[in-house]
């Protein structure tokens, strides 16, 4: 049987929205409003106008990347809307948002904070405090991934329960929604 990958469009869109929104939360809240770190604040500590400018440039590239992820999410969301077999589950969507946000925090935390150390969550903190903030950021990622996976699983279970068999014996959510 030919696999229909478009069935995953809503979940994929939600995950990409989660990554994008997670990136914007990091960029807008941590980089700009709270100013606890910038993209390269561990290499160019923002204690001079020149270093602030360099960090601002790299923060811009970071925001451009998160914007691109969000744009791709819009594409998948639009495609999901055009697909009559899309199961519009709130749990799947919210679960995808959490999963995407969690993936962003976890992957970005591991690579940027721990492996390459271009910045830390709270740059001005030192020693153990700095490490604890970095670990808390990672932990938030793991918690969000767990919440997201749980909600997606619940959404899938509900969709299966609502589906009805078609004449060909294949379950069809669209037919199910028409019958209600």
């Amino acid at each position: 049987m030919k696999k229909n990958f478009h069935k995953n469009d809503l979940r994929t869109a939600a995950i990409l929205f989660g990554i994008g929104m997670g990136g914007f939360i990091d960029g807008i809240l941590f980089h700009q409003i709270l100013q606890v770190h910038n993209m390269l604040s561990n290499r160019f500590f923002p204690d001079s106008l020149v270093n602030v400018d360099i960090n601002m440039f790299w923060d811009g590239l970071f925001h451009a990347a998160t914007w691109t992820v969000t744009a791709v999410a819009i594409y998948f969301f639009w495609r999901a809307g055009l697909n009559h077999r899309t199961v519009w589950s709130g749990k799947t969507f919210v679960g995808g948002l959490f999963l995407g946000w969690g993936l962003f925090n976890f992957v970005e935390g591991i690579i940027d904070h721990h492996i390459l150390q271009v910045h830390h969550v709270v740059q001005r903190a030192t020693g153990l405090t700095q490490l604890l903030w970095d670990l808390a950021f990672l932990a938030s990622g793991i918690v969000f991934i767990a919440i997201g996976s749980f909600l997606i699983k619940r959404g899938k279970a509900e969709a299966v329960a609502q589906a009805v068999p078609t004449h060909s014996g294949v379950y069809d959510q669209a037919e199910s929604s028409l019958s209600h």
């Binding site: 970071f62 990347a65 992957v107 690579i111 940027d112």
Partner: peptide, 16 residues
């Protein structure tokens, strides 16, 4: 630095 900027998004793209 270039890796730090690009690799999280490449890894996330791979996961998605």
């Amino acid at each position: 630095i270039v890796l730090a900027a690009a690799s999280p998004f490449l890894v996330l793209a791979f996961v998605v």
